[in-house]
Structure formats: structure tokens, C-alpha cells
Amino acid sequence: MRALDLEYMWGLVPVLLGYVPLTLFMALVGMVCALVLASLMAVERVFRVPLLDIFVRLFISFFRGTPLLVQLFLFYYGLPQVLSVMTNINGVTATIMGLTLHFSAYMAESIRAAILGVDRSQWEASQAVGMTQVQMMSQIILPQAARVAAPTLVNYFIDMIKGTSLAFTLGVTELMGATQKEAAGSFLYFEAFLVVAAIYWIMVEVLAFAQRHLETYLNKAHAR
């Protein structure tokens, strides 16, 4: 057993922190896109639009049923061979696409369950005052479902942040890729990966802190 090279680790911190923005960028863009897509799919699943419903169910089934890494390889290495518009896809775009589609499938199911959990009285009152279905969903049902789904959705966001590390397999020099390169240069693998683990961990903890505030905000209507 040898001692940790603390000086090396300390020096690595600012280098790796430089890659945090790219990681957060991929996760954030992926999250926003996934939320929009998942909400649309969840609403579709609740109302069961004929035909579209089959497509959405197939989509959810496929993206939940296959590994994220396989999906990323499909988009980045596979699709360009069959779709000419994909020829110039870069690793960052492919990662965001993969994260969006993969996590939207999971999130759609959580949001759907949350929508179905909203009390029947809320749907009936919305209809009774003469709201259209769009008004009912946007003003009453989805905001209440959001409160229920929020903790689960934040957990998916945490998974997504960690999932961005797979981008290095598509040749993107993001946090994980950069660590890999540094470690390969110094041969101090343990130190390097310890630093990057700490950076991911801290990011997730900051998010967990924000989550508590988000939940207090979403629960304000239920405080007595």
C-alpha cells in the first residue's frame, strides 16, 4: 500500500472542474427535453389517443428495456450508417439525445402515475367550471401531479448527471473522459478517479439540497 499523492489530487481539482460545465450542460438540456417529452407522453397515455398510444407504448418499452449505453452506441455509431442526416452528429448531441429519450421513457411513467393519482374531484371541478382539457391539464392537473412526481423526477435528474459520464465512450472529453486522460498520463488512477468521484458526489449533494427547497415550494398549498 502506498500513500495518496495529495498534491497531485489537489492540482487535478481545478483541471477537472473545468469540465463540470459541459457535464451540467448535457444533463440540463437532456432533463428539460426529457421533461417536455415525458409530459407529452404521459398525457397521451392518460387520454390514450388511438394509434399514437401504440407508438408511445412501444417507445417507452424500448427505451426502458435496453441499456443506455446500447442506445448511445446506436445513435452515435449506428444511425449515421443508415441515416444521412445523422452523419455529422457529434458526441455531445448524441449523448443529449440518448439521455433525453432514455430518461423520458422512465419519467413518462412516473408522471402518468402522478396524473392518475390526482383526485377525481379536481378533474370534475375543472370540467364543471367549463375549462377545456388543455386548461384543465395545464392549470390544475399537471401542477398537482408535479408535486407528487417531483422527488422521483429529481432522482432521474441525478441519474442523468451520472449518465453523462457515458459520453466518454463516444469520444467526448467531458468530466469522465478528461479524468481518464489525466490518469493515463500520470498512472495515478486511484487519485484521479477519487477526485472525479468527489466532484460527481458534490454535484449530486448540491442538487439534493435544491430538491428540499423545491419540495417545500411545491408543498406550499398543503401546509397547514
Partner: peptide, 19 residues
């Protein structure tokens, strides 16, 4: 039709996310 009628529910059915 719904916009010409109004309804008061037995269980109130207030919008839980609205003041």
C-alpha cells in the same frame, strides 16, 4: 353547456393547488 351552468359539490372539490 358547462359554461352556462355551475356546480357546487358535496365534497367542495376546490382546486387544491389554488388559493
Amino acid at each position: 353547456l358547462r359554461r352556462r351552468t355551475s356546480f357546487v359539490f358535496q365534497n367542495y372539490a376546490l382546486f387544491a393547488n389554488k388559493t
